[in-house]
């Protein structure tokens, strides 16, 4: 079984760099979008169970400056390779900077068609930490003309031509059966991603990692959405730390502050 895993080199939203009330995208570090590790883990487990086939991570670099991001994304690719993914394909091109999910989905679709070939499953995360749109995998399914099943919390059965999964929705859990190939997205609760041992990290250096451009994919992207402003949402906090004294003293202090703020009114 061949499984494509979608791994976004995402902006680390716990480390957003800001200046003059702007988010400085170029200075913010990248990390693997958290839930894409769950996607990678699930792909590796399925491959282990099915005893055969391969797992391919596809990553699309979206942020400037391209030269620096290339190296950063490559390091992130090594992380999923170390987990046990067999091969990584990184799409990196100045033409992708400032594009929306339309371009991301088209780039991934073309990688699947032109570089992967035969595949059974595409697994992505329920949402990214920086985009948080939950749009890219459904768009890929639309481009490829195959089913999309989102918010999968458990893959109950995988056969050579079908899957049975549990979808975790707001009010209910649905058990859904689909033909393969299909695109699925997993939730954070589906598994606990493995942390690779040192030996595997070294071995990952030898696994295939390729970089492709939009030209290599024969793709021209249109730009029909432009960001005109990007501000951090910040609220100034007092950051008073109550750390010394006994438990009793700390409680008294907190109650004192809370009554000053009018949150509680002691009699």
């Amino acid at each position: 079984m061949n499984i494509v895993v979608l791994v976004k080199p995402a902006l680390d939203t716990s480390n957003l760099r800001t200046a003059a009330n702007k988010i400085m995208v170029e200075d913010t570090p990248l990390k693997i979008s958290d839930i894409d590790r769950n996607a990678a883990e699930e792909a590796i487990r399925i491959k282990e169970k099915m005893k055969g086939g391969k797992t391919i991570a596809v990553m699309v670099s979206k942020y400037p400056p391209t030269p620096k991001r290339g190296g950063e994304a490559e390091n992130l690719a090594r992380e999923v390779l170390a987990m046990g993914i067999d091969e990584a394909i990184l799409v990196i091109d100045d033409g992708l900077i400032g594009t929306d999910q339309t371009a991301t989905a088209k780039a991934i679709t073309e990688v699947v068609r032109k570089k992967v070939g035969q595949f059974d499953l595409v697994i992505g995360g329920e949402a990214t930490i920086d985009g948080y749109s939950s749009q890219v995998p459904a768009r890929i399914a639309a481009e490829l003309g195959i089913p999309i099943i989102t918010y999968v919390r458990e893959i109950s059965q995988v056969g050579s031509d079908s899957v049975v999964v549990k979808r975790d929705l707001e009010d209910e859990v649905q058990v859904v059966k689909s033909k393969l190939p299909a695109v699925i997205t997993v939730t954070r609760e589906i598994n606990t991603p493995r942390i690779p041992p040192l030996l595997q990290i070294r071995m990952a250096m030898k696994k295939p990692l390729s970089k492709v451009s939009l030209g290599d994919l024969g793709l021209q992207v249109e730009r029909r959405a432009r960001t005109t402003d990007l501000k951090p949402l910040q609220i100034q906090r007092k950051k008073v730390l109550i750390e010394s004294g006994t438990v009793d003293e700390k409680a008294d202090k907190l109650i004192q502050y809370l009554s000053q703020e009018g949150v509680v009114t002691p009699r």
């Binding site: 902006l11 939203t13 957003l16 988010i23 990214t128 930490i129 920086d130 948080y132 029909r224 959405a225 432009r226 960001t227 005109t228 402003d229 990007l230 501000k231 951090p232 949402l233």
Partner: peptide, 15 residues
């Protein structure tokens, strides 16, 4: 909202 609701973004679209 943007950046996992840690940012506010303005976007202009064509079409």
């Amino acid at each position: 909202y943007s950046m996992g609701s840690r940012g506010a973004e303005e976007v202009e679209v064509d079409g």
